[in-house]
Design a protein around this nucleic acid. Structure first.
Ligand SMILES: [Zn+2]
Ligand SMILES: [Zn+2]
Ligand SMILES: [Zn+2]
Ligand SMILES: [Zn+2]
Lengths: 163, 163
DNA sequence: TAAAATTTGAAACATTATAACATTTACAGG
DNA sequence: CCTGTAAATGTTATAATGTTTCAAATTTTA
């Protein structure tokens, strides 16, 4: 797997998308899960940028596809994709983003730029370790971590108002 | 300030509430902010337990007070309380909880028990440090951290189905 | 092929949050 | 005490997000 694209910088994003779809197909096959056309299309839509997309945004895109979908269609597809580690929900934004570590067993940490809206997913083992330590010091059995950092990406610190 | 009550264990919760209200009055005075009757009442309602309360739950309680309130009343009060560091919003639950470190300048980390619903707010400097490190390694200027851990509290690990 | 399980369609509804504008209240200066 | 101003609250409507339910179609299994 090659070096990961940085959302904040221009890059060949088509490569991000096709890599994500290729990975998804492999992962679903391995897990005996069915990446149906709707699910694949939703994943593709989610990956259209590195900015999280709301469920109703996905719905609107499906509609402009000519697909007459209702909310449950989208939420089901998103549930499926989450279940199989292909997308993450960003709780602080009520929105969804493609996982850049699909298949890698990880706990995502998300850097969310409040200016450009792009999100970078990191794996930070040191953070996970400290979180686990803090939880177990309280006797708490951690199952699921939501870690979302809002702030300014390097690009927007230098030069505001990027897309 | 005495040792903090552990939400997961029985304790004199009236003491939690009155401490929180006393602290809130002092903090607002120091900040020249007006802790009006509505705001104080909302804070008291939020503190009625260590389980996060939804905005519409607050609304319902206000109504049963005989106060004929609409959603904006509650959201405004909650915004005020958040602004002054008296309550936190738990993004993964769309709900609000009293801050147990009001006035202490901190980044909250929340241990959310999925069985009993209680939430413990921690300050974990080591976690904050690692989060800061991970962000700055990416050149990201972190401004706001959402850190919520769902799992099982000690009590519910031992003995399920507590309230 | 027939039965079973999974996936999708469709309609209604529930929950959470905000916009917009009117009214009231608190406060400072005259 | 009045009065102008800003802050806070009331009120109505609406937007945004997410779920329940049941029916129909599709895929898988036997
Ligand atoms: Zn890309
Ligand atoms: Zn991921
Ligand atoms: Zn208590
Ligand atoms: Zn706090």
């Amino acid at each position: 797997m090659s070096a990961r694209a940085i959302p904040y910088r221009p890059h060949n994003h088509d490569a991000c998308v096709s890599q994500a779809l290729t990975d998804a197909r492999a992962i679903c096959q391995r897990q005996n899960a069915r990446l149906t056309p709707i699910r694949e299309r939703v994943l593709e839509l989610i990956w259209q940028s590195h900015k999280p997309l709301g469920a109703y945004d996905v719905l609107a895109e499906l509609s402009s596809d000519g697909h007459n979908a209702a909310p449950p269609t989208v939420y089901r597809a998103l549930d499926f994709l989450q279940q199989h580690g292909l997308v993450h929900r960003i709780a602080s934004l009520n929105a969804f983003i493609g996982c850049t570590h699909a298949g890698e067993h990880h706990t995502g940490m998300f850097l969310i730029c409040r200016a450009c809206g792009n999100v970078l997913e990191l794996t930070a083992p040191a953070v996970s370790t400290e979180v686990g330590k803090a939880a177990s010091e309280e006797g708490f059995r951690a199952e699921n971590t939501t870690l979302e950092i809002a702030g300014l990406c390097p690009r927007c610190q230098a030069e505001p108002d990027h897309d």
